[in-house]
Every structure is written in structure tokens, then in C-alpha cells.
């Protein structure tokens, strides 16, 4: 089976994954993932539920650390740095610093129950931002295409905004700490089509500055926004569980136009999943 059908130039990869296995307790959740996320591009992860695409995404900023039973094997390099070091290096590695450089946007908009201003400023403050905070807040909100809608109510609660606005606020919050990569875990799953369109347009702008990895259930969305697409699938194990694996990873046109694997062809044409 083909694990990675591209021939990546290592130097252009922001994140590269080698032989990644993720376990929850003793259950293998995802196996044998190899892929490279190219810098300043959008990579989409698609596949049926339970195929492990979110799990892989959450390895990139070590959010799986928050789940006590999660265990990761293999190598993930971020800009050449091993983010799952072993032995002596593991003690010196700090996921907190990694998470400043790899931001995340979640499936359900989750602004802090604080003012719009504080939502943006908090992340910068805890990371020791020394510049002009007002300027940073405005720049971040402009960057997330929400400034015009909120500039007169920065003191109001972030929870008072609509779902789509909340999600753009969360994107503004993520870009305020100037990460290099933004991970998006089904960012439009809870939004209506108009809000979704706004986020998609925003992503096209954001990729000039950031590398973006997006998990989505919406295949049209993957084909619209992404440069590269990874298709994951799940297969039954002997023990009766399910294990996810990477079926095919290639340029988005290839995945949707002329995929090499039959599974991929069936999935993107809507024949299963």
C-alpha cells in the first residue's frame, strides 16, 4: 500500500511525519502515517469518522498530551525539530513553547468568556508580548476579517457574537501569537454556509503567512481550499476495534481527479463513507 505518493522536498516541509502510531491505552488508533506538510500551503485531512485524522492533527501541537491514556510512537518533525523526543531530550522539550508556534482552531467555536479584546490579548500576554497591545489586537482581528464587525464593541463578551464571528475571533486569537502553523479541526462543522464561505476565503489569505492543516468532513471544502489532501480510512482489527491509516496523500487535484487508490476514488465520488 502506498503511504505517501508524493516525493517531498524535505526542506519545504513545515511538518514531516514518519511512521506515526498513536495509541489510546492499549488500542492502536492510527498506524503507519508518513506525510509532509509543505510550508505556506493548505493541507486537508479527509476520511470517514474514526479514521484518526483529528488524532494525527492533535499530535502536531501535542494536544494529545492532555489525554492521559494517549501514547505516540514514531517521529514528527516541526521545522526539523523532533517534537516527540525520547530519552534525555524528552526532559528538555517543552510542549508549551511548541504550542505557541503551532496554533489551533477547534471544531466548536470556543472563545473565552471574556471581552473580545481580552480574547486576543490574553495569549499574547501569557507569552510575554512586549509590543503595543492595542495594535496587536487590531492587526489580529483584521487578519481574521472580523475587525469591521467588532471594532466598536471590543469590551463586549466574545460569547455575544454569532457562531461564525466567534470562530473568526478564535482564528484571530490563534494568529495573535504569530504561530507558524495553524491547525484547524473541522472549523466549519458548526457553522452555516455563509460563515463557512467567509472562513474559507480567510484561509486563502492566511496561507500567505501561515502553514495550515485542516481536518474536514466536507469534501467540497477540501477540494476548494486545499493544496494537498490526505485521505484516511479505518479498517477493522482482529480484536474487534478499528484502526485508522493513511490511504493516499497527494496534490488535491490528483486526489479528487485521478486518485491512485480505489478506496480514495470511492470516497471522493461519494460511493461510501
Amino acid at each position: 500500500m502506498l503511504q505517501d505518493t508524493s516525493s517531498p522536498a524535505v526542506s519545504s516541509a513545515a511538518i514531516s511525519v514518519e511512521k506515526l502510531n498513536v495509541y489510546y491505552g492499549s488500542n492502536l488508533a492510527v498506524r503507519d502515517v508518513y506525510l509532509d506538510i509543505p510550508r505556506n500551503q493548505i493541507a486537508a485531512f479527509i476520511g470517514p469518522s474514526g479514521c484518526g485524522k483529528s488524532t494525527v492533527l492533535r499530535c502536531f501541537n501535542r494536544m494529545n498530551d492532555l489525554i492521559a491514556s494517549a501514547r505516540v510512537e514514531g517521529t514528527i518533525r516541526f521545522e526539523g525539530m523532533d517534537i516527540y523526543p525520547t530519552g534525555e531530550a524528552a526532559k528538555n522539550f517543552d510542549p508549551v513553547e511548541l504550542r505557541r508556534r503551532i496554533g489551533m482552531v477547534f471544531q466548536k467555536p470556543n472563545p473565552f468568556p471574556k471581552s473580545i479584546y481580552e480574547n486576543i490579548a490574553w495569549g499574547a500576554r501569557i507569552n510575554g508580548y512586549r509590543g503595543d497591545m492595542d495594535e496587536l489586537v487590531e492587526r489580529s482581528l483584521r487578519g481574521a476579517a472580523i475587525w469591521d464587525e467588532v471594532k466598536d464593541k471590543l469590551k463586549e463578551s466574545g460569547l455575544a457574537l454569532s457562531g461564525g464571528q466567534q470562530q473568526r475571533l478564535c482564528i484571530a486569537r490563534a494568529i495573535a501569537i504569530e504561530p507558524e502553523v495553524i491547525l484547524m479541526d473541522e472549523p466549519c462543522a458548526a457553522l452555516d454556509p455563509i460563515s463557512t464561505l467567509k472562513i474559507e476565503e480567510l484561509m486563502a489569505q492566511l496561507k500567505e503567512k501561515f502553514t495550515i492543516v485542516i481536518v474536514t468532513h466536507n469534501m467540497q471544502q477540501a477540494s476548494r481550499v486545499s493544496d494537498r489532501t490526505a485521505f484516511y480510512n479505518a479498517e477493522a482489527t482482529d480484536a474487534g476495534g478499528k484502526v485508522g491509516y493513511l490511504v493516499e496523500y497527494d496534490d488535491t487535484e490528483v486526489i479528487f481527479g485521478n486518485p491512485k487508490e480505489e478506496y480514495t476514488r470511492d470516497y471522493v465520488s461519494g460511493r461510501f463513507g
Binding site: R99, G103, W122, N127
Partner: peptide, 12 residues
């Protein structure tokens, strides 16, 4: 989700 948002911004 609030805790996760905090951790994802690089908070301890």
C-alpha cells in the same frame, strides 16, 4: 473546550 483553547495558545 475553554481549557483546550488556553493550552493551545501555549499556556501552562
Amino acid at each position: 473546550s475553554i481549557r483546550q483553547a488556553g493550552y493551545a495558545l501555549g499556556a501552562n
